[in-house]
C-alpha cells in the first residue's frame, strides 16, 4: 500500500549535468536563487511530470495570489497581507525559489508586525522575483514541450 515509487534518476542527473555545464559560476548561483531545479526535483521525488503539473497550477494561480497581496497593501489590511503573503510563500517554496520566498516572507512579516516603512520596496522586490520565477518556470515547461 505504501510502496514508494522511486523517481527517474536520469532526470535528476540530467539537471545536475546541465548545471555543471554552466561556465559562469555567478550565473549559476543567480539562477539557483530564482529557481533551483535540482532541489525542486528532489521535492517531487525526481518526478518531472509532477513538477510540470504543479508548474502549470502555479502559473495559473500565482497572479491571483499577487493580486490579493496588492489589494491588502492598497487597503492597508495587515491581516490579509500576512495571510496572502504566507500563502504565496508556501506556494513558491515548492519550487525552491529562495529569492521570491524571501520577498514573500518579508511582506508576511510586515503584515504580522504592522511595519509601514519599506513595504513598497518589499512589494517591488516581490514583483521582480516573481516575474523571474515565472519566466524560469515557463522556460522549463516550454523546454519539455519542445
Amino acid at each position: 500500500m505504501t510502496t514508494r515509487i522511486p523517481g527517474p534518476e536520469s532526470v535528476l542527473l540530467g539537471s545536475c549535468r546541465r548545471l555543471c555545464q554552466t561556465t559562469d559560476h555567478g550565473q549559476e548561483v543567480e539562477a539557483a536563487r530564482v529557481f533551483d531545479q535540482v532541489a525542486a526535483l528532489m521535492r517531487v521525488e525526481g518526478d518531472i511530470e509532477l513538477l510540470l503539473e504543479i508548474v502549470e497550477v502555479f502559473l495559473e494561480d500565482s497572479p491571483r495570489l499577487m493580486a490579493r497581496i496588492r489589494t491588502a497593501l492598497e487597503r492597508q489590511d495587515l491581516s490579509l497581507l500576512e495571510q496572502a503573503a504566507h500563502t504565496l510563500k508556501g506556494s513558491v517554496g515548492n519550487f525552491c525559489a529562495p529569492a521570491a520566498y524571501a520577498a514573500a516572507s518579508k511582506l508576511e512579516k510586515f503584515g504580522r508586525e504592522g511595519n509601514v516603512t519599506g513595504r513598497q520596496e518589499a512589494w517591488n522586490e516581490l514583483q521582480e522575483t516573481m516575474e523571474q520565477l515565472r519566466l524560469a518556470l515557463m522556460s522549463l515547461r516550454d523546454e519539455r514541450l519542445a
Binding site: I54, V57, D61, G90, N94
Partner: peptide, 8 residues
C-alpha cells in the same frame, strides 16, 4: 489553502 501545495 494553496492549491499548488494541495496538488503536490
Amino acid at each position: 489553502d494553496d492549491i499548488v501545495s494541495l496538488r503536490l
